[in-house]
Simulated assay, not measured.
Amino acid sequence: MKLLKKISAFVLLGALMASCGEKKAEETTDMTDTTTVEVEAPVAAQTIVDVAVANADFSTLVTAVKAADLVETLSSEGPFTVFAPNNAAFDKLPAGTVDGLLKPESIEKLKSVLTYHVVAGNFDAAAVVDAINKNNGKYSVTTVQGGTIVLSLKDGNVMLTDANGGTAMVILADVAASNGVIHAIDTVVMPK
Rank of each mutant, 00 (worst) to 15 (best):
P79N: 08
L102R: 04
L110A: 03
V98C: 04
P79M: 03
S112C: 07
N86Y: 12
P104C: 09
V82M: 01
S75E: 04
A120R: 13
S106G: 02
V129E: 08
K92W: 06
G147P: 02
G146A: 09
L93G: 03
V71F: 05
G78D: 04
A126R: 11
D91W: 06
T142M: 07
Q145V: 03
A84I: 03
D91P: 09
F83G: 06
G100I: 04
A84Q: 06
E72W: 07
A126C: 10
A89N: 04
E77T: 14
A68N: 05
Y139S: 13
T143C: 07
G147V: 00
F123H: 13
V118L: 09
V65W: 01
I107W: 01
V82T: 03
V119C: 06
V118M: 03
G146R: 01
E105L: 06
V98P: 03
L70C: 02
E72Q: 14
T81E: 05
G96D: 09
A127I: 09
K92H: 07
Y116I: 00
V119E: 00
Q145C: 04
K92L: 13
Q145K: 02
V128W: 07
T97P: 05
F90R: 05
A127E: 14
N86T: 13
T142P: 01
K138N: 15
K134N: 15
V144R: 04
N86S: 08
S106M: 08
T73K: 07
E77Q: 13
G146N: 02
E108D: 14
T97Q: 10
F123L: 15
T142G: 05
G100A: 08
S76H: 11
N122A: 13
P94S: 07
Y139A: 14
S112N: 12
D69M: 08
E105H: 08
G137P: 11
N133E: 15
K134S: 15
G146W: 01
A67T: 04
K134I: 09
A95W: 10
K134W: 09
D99R: 06
H117E: 02
A131V: 11
D69L: 10
L114V: 00
E105A: 14
K138R: 14
Y139N: 14
V113Q: 02
L74E: 02
A89M: 08
A126D: 14
D69Y: 08
N135G: 12
N87F: 12
P104R: 09
K92V: 10
Y139E: 12
V128G: 12
